[in-house]
Design a protein around this nucleic acid. Structure first.
Lengths: 190, 190
DNA sequence: TAGCACATGTAATAAGTTACATGATTTT
DNA sequence: AAAATCATGTAACTTATTACATGTGCTA
């Protein structure tokens, strides 16, 4: 069993494990559940679905619900096996590029206040992410309280939330240090 | 001033702000300093350097140190301005894909013990990252104690370390929960 | 009737890795 | 003498986003 470099196909298999659905619905579902740590564009989804059918990982059925045509995909046994196999393979360590850290690293070259502004902006982004996580979990708890996968959804969300919280703490600490060093441009923050 | 989607050129400008160097040396330097949050391959570096010279962001000088030829690049005023401008632009929020979280999210489909194993593996990766960060900072403190950029290098490292620590804590908490739910395959961990 | 959500797809472009090709020098 | 490191580069391939093209059905 060999896997591609990225997990586009597997993310779709995972969604199909929750029930048959169309490419459009997959995109939507990602937006409402995994958006904080995984998304796919239509440009990836539709070609991937074609490959999946060709490879026997899913089947298609053209449905015309209310005159509106859609292609509903369904996981095959082979698809399930493939998903399970992928879930058992250790993700190999990959560098996730972090533009903020790159900017901080070269911060000595920035105009006074620029890095402090980056830190403030990052803090805001993290607060937003945290809110998104909280809203997502809350909605899921309400809509799918008894779903067997719920504990896993909660675990995944908690990891993202832990990241966000740690980054917020770092932002505060770092902003304070920049302030102590006189590297915060007053005009912008008081 | 408009920027490309990624910061390959800017990462090279940043390195050149520390002093003139060759493409090979840039790669090496990244490996020894920003490897935890930013790397570039030669396939990116060499073409980018060509573009940079063409765009007036750097100049080249062919040097033959000890009979060995190399191209040493140097930042121009325009290159400096460009770097400073980039440092002042807020990074727009991007989803960084997290394969581990995707696997946890679909963990209900995994074989017993598989997700616990993923969590254990992630914990190890984070411990390693933490060690790399500590070693990097230590080496820098020794080699460049009085470098004006040192405070920024420390800040960047501390952010990465905070991430790693937060993830380790999440791993422990999550492993404990999986254990409580009987989702750890005994054979593998005792 | 205008606009939005539903629905599927492709083409162009961008971004990035890997493997290969080449050759010098230094270390083992 | 072999292997590793220094040094530059390109070609093939993979991955991903964005914009475009097309059309239906529902809602304001």
């Amino acid at each position: 069993m060999s896997f591609e470099k990225t997990s586009t196909v597997e993310s779709l298999l995972g969604l199909l494990s929750l029930g048959p659905m169309s490419g459009y619905e997959m995109r939507q579902m990602m937006e409402r559940s995994t958006a904080n740590f995984w998304t796919e564009s239509y440009g990836q989804i539709y070609p991937a679905l074609k490959r999946m059918v060709k490879d026997g990982l899913a089947t298609v059925e053209e449905q015309s619900k209310d005159g509106r045509a859609k292609k509903v995909y369904k996981l095959t046994g082979e698809g399930e096996r493939r998903l399970r196999a992928w879930l058992g393979v250790e993700a190999k360590p990959q560098v996730h590029r972090n533009e903020l850290l790159l900017k901080v690293f070269f911060g000595d070259q920035a105009l006074r206040g620029a890095i402090a502004a980056q830190v403030v902006a990052e803090r805001e982004r993290c607060e937003e992410a945290l809110e998104r996580y909280e809203a997502t979990v809350l909605r899921m708890e309400v809509e799918h309280a008894r779903h067997p996968a719920m504990p896993y959804w909660r675990m995944a969300a908690r990891c993202g939330m832990a990241h966000a919280k740690a980054t917020i703490a770092w932002c505060d600490e770092t902003f304070a240090e920049l302030e102590k060093r006189g590297l915060v441009s007053k005009a912008k923050f008081y």
